[in-house]
């Protein structure tokens, strides 16, 4: 029982990353009808926003301390981050410690900006082109973004730890009298993704803006004829989708040290997730994300691996193939999407 609960937890935290990326992909697809292969790169850029914030906060100046000497007998140089000098050592230390959560504030405007520029500068010109062209141009863009990041940050993974207080482990099972020890940050990640997903859904459901966007997704032309500038709203949605992917990346950095090709690794899986969930269906994307995450973690249990060796490596693809062949529109796909 413990093991099963633990696997579900494991699956949920991987699944939340899948769900967040797939949600963004589906938002873009549902609104603009564009297949965005650069979405993984947006996830990666988000992760590197966290790296940047961490580096910025750690910018420091050196002072020679005449009282102390290092082991060679020379005066010791003491490095003090600017933040500590401005806010005092305790407050400054805390700010540096909380670099990753702080990066969220930094990442939101940057990601929305990146998304806006991408849509206006490139994707706009590809609405009328075939889907193959969209895939190809965004694939090229992904390569470019990846290489730019590699140029500035190098090819090695960069460690970005979570805040000290969220870095430990917690016994989640204590409440129900069981023993389930789990890293705190992964719980945070899961809760964070639930908040984001909930936020996006309520934004679309309960605001006027969201209503117009949903109307546009259902029938773009009619909404346009009503005198609403739907293109501008869709551009904003693209920015929001980019921000969702970016935030998923920011929060993922303590789980897995970011490197420049992390986006590509996630991209393939999140496309599978989108297709399993059904092209253009937001609940489908979220559901499929969590489902595939949980299935993947169950498949990596030793008991199951001993029955079917290697199943943990391929379970997602097997599920995807079965679903695509039996339910051609995915779990919750709408009629008439991508069927031309």
């Amino acid at each position: 029982m413990d093991a099963i609960l633990l696997q579900i937890l494991n699956g949920l935290d991987k699944g939340s990353a899948y769900a967040l990326i797939a949600l963004g992909l589906t938002l873009i697809f549902g609104t603009l009808g564009v297949v965005n292969f650069a979405h993984g790169a947006l996830f990666m850029i988000g992760a590197f926003c966290a790296v940047t914030v961490q580096r910025l906060l750690n910018l420091s100046f050196e002072v020679v301390d005449p009282d102390k000497t290092d082991f060679l007998g020379q005066p010791l140089k003491v490095k003090t981050p600017y933040v500590e000098a401005w806010f005092g050592p305790e407050m400054g230390g805390a700010i540096i410690d909380w670099a990753v959560p702080l990066a969220i504030l930094f990442a939101i405007p940057i990601m929305i900006g990146v998304g806006y520029v991408m849509e206006r500068g490139l994707i706009k010109h590809f609405y009328k082109r075939p889907h193959a062209d969209q895939i190809l141009v965004t694939f090229g863009l992904a390569i470019v973004l990846q290489e730019v990041v590699k140029y500035f940050y190098g090819a090695n993974p960069i460690q970005t730890p979570a805040p000290e207080s969220l870095n430990g482990i917690v016994n989640l099972g204590a409440v129900i009298g069981m023993d389930i020890v789990y890293p705190v940050w992964r719980v945070v990640y899961f809760l964070f993704s639930v908040v984001i997903i909930g936020g996006i859904f309520s934004f679309l459901q309960f605001t006027t803006f969201g209503m117009v966007v949903r109307a546009g997704m259902a029938d773009r032309e009619t909404v346009g004829l009503l005198g609403i500038n739907i293109d501008r709203r869709f551009t904003i949605m693209f920015g929001i989708a980019a921000a969702v992917a970016g935030l998923a990346g920011v929060m993922y950095t303590p789980i897995n040290s970011p490197n420049y090709h992390m986006g590509m690794d996630f991209l393939v899986l999140s496309f599978v997730v989108v297709v399993v969930g059904g092209m253009g269906s937001l609940p489908g994307a979220v559901l499929a994300g969590f489902m595939l995450g949980v299935l993947e973690s169950f498949a990596s249990m030793n008991e199951i691996k001993s029955i079917i060796p290697g199943i943990d490596q391929i379970i997602i693809y097997v599920v995807a193939i079965i679903i695509l062949l039996t339910r051609p529109r995915g779990l919750m796909g709408r009629k008439g999407v991508m069927e031309d």
Partner: peptide
């Protein structure tokens, strides 16, 4: 059995497998 992007994803899935 499928075409368009579904075909791309299926072949991708098989290759990754």
């Amino acid at each position: 059995r499928r075409s368009g992007i579904y075909f791309s994803i299926l072949t991708l899935a098989f290759a990754q497998m």
